[in-house]
């Protein structure tokens, strides 16, 4: 698989006739996977020279309507990591700047897909719209396909529990703490990468030492505050743990993310870990005393260990 962020001609990588898909693919969820599988199948069945995925270096709304830009399910680096699982030939990361956003749909297809990528087959999700102000509907794309001789395949949505799988819905689910609904649609537990920083070491005083986490990517979505059963990936291996997102109201009033890692002793300061949110155990609440807090944490830990012992995603 070849990653490219070059704006110019990529036909040396795509060969004479490529199958192309394009989209934000935030989260690379079940619906996205359906589109990508269809792209790869199309390439193989027709015998095209490559399967190409085009995505953007940031969310388009962060350029066109910054006030409406959603938090991201996957950062660019995370998305690239997930896309590596697929049998794609080329992944193109286009800079989504105002000039790029200003192309109308015919210009966009001609300049960015046909000439640059030798596209002969376009595979898109049912809700994709092209060009400036999303004016290029799928009908219009099909018409242009007839004129410019490329085929268009529109992939219908994926459903879970009778509901269309969409990035917007998954964001809503995570923002209300429903990690299990989100996991099912993402086909994996929602995760974020965070750096371990020095905290006030208060947890240690009540026998629940925690790592204080800072998420470097400001655009990354953080699930709703609360206590979660989590899996933690460190350089040294994978561990179970429990995480608190929020303000730790009993002890201090600064917001933050802390994770207590089970059966772990060691120094993680300065390292980056990946946290997979398996299950939301409870909301955050204030306790009258540290003893009450410790009791509750012991209950949480038992529940978390039980949850983590079950097969996850």
């Amino acid at each position: 698989m070849k990653f490219s962020d070059k704006a110019e001609d990529l036909s040396a990588f795509t060969g004479p006739s490529s199958a192309v898909t394009i989209g934000v693919f935030d989260g690379v969820h079940l619906g996205h996977r359906k589109v990508i599988s269809r792209l790869i199948r199309t390439r193989r069945e027709i015998g095209l020279s490559s399967a190409v995925l085009v995505t953007f270096d940031r969310h388009p709304l962060s350029v066109t309507h910054p006030d409406k830009a959603p938090p991201l399910l996957t950062t660019l680096e995370e998305k690239k990591g997930i896309l590596r699982e697929f049998d794609l030939d080329v992944v193109v990361i286009d800079r989504f700047n105002p000039g790029y956003a200003a192309l109308n749909y015919t210009e966009f297809i001609r300049e960015k897909l046909l000439g640059r990528l030798n596209m002969s087959h376009l595979v898109v999700g049912y809700d994709f719209r092209f060009g400036k102000d999303r004016t290029g509907s799928l009908e219009m794309i099909r018409e242009q396909g007839m004129r410019s001789s490329f085929e268009v395949t529109v992939v219908p949505p994926a459903y879970v529990g009778g509901q269309i799988v969409s990035s917007t819905r998954i964001r809503e689910q995570l923002l209300r703490g429903d990690t299990e609904m989100a996991s099912e649609r993402l086909t994996r537990d929602y995760f974020f990468d965070a750096e371990v920083v020095r905290g006030e070491s208060i947890g240690r005083q009540i026998s629940f030492p925690t790592a204080n986490l800072v998420v470097k990517e400001s655009s990354k979505l953080i699930p709703r505050s609360g206590v979660y059963a989590v899996m933690v990936e460190t350089e040294g291996g994978r561990y179970g743990g429990m995480m608190n997102i929020g303000t730790a109201p009993t002890i201090k009033n600064t917001g933050g993310i802390e994770v207590h890692i089970f059966d772990f002793s060691g120094d993680l300061y300065g390292s980056t870990i990946r946290v997979y949110c398996r299950k939301n155990l409870r909301e955050e609440k204030k306790f009258a005393s540290r003893d009450q807090l410790r009791e509750q944490l012991e209950t949480d830990a038992r529940r978390a260990r039980r949850v983590l012992a079950m097969p996850g995603r």
Partner: peptide, 10 residues
Amino acid sequence: MSGPQAADLL
């Protein structure tokens, strides 16, 4: 064959 020709052949 071009891509569309290959699709047509099928």
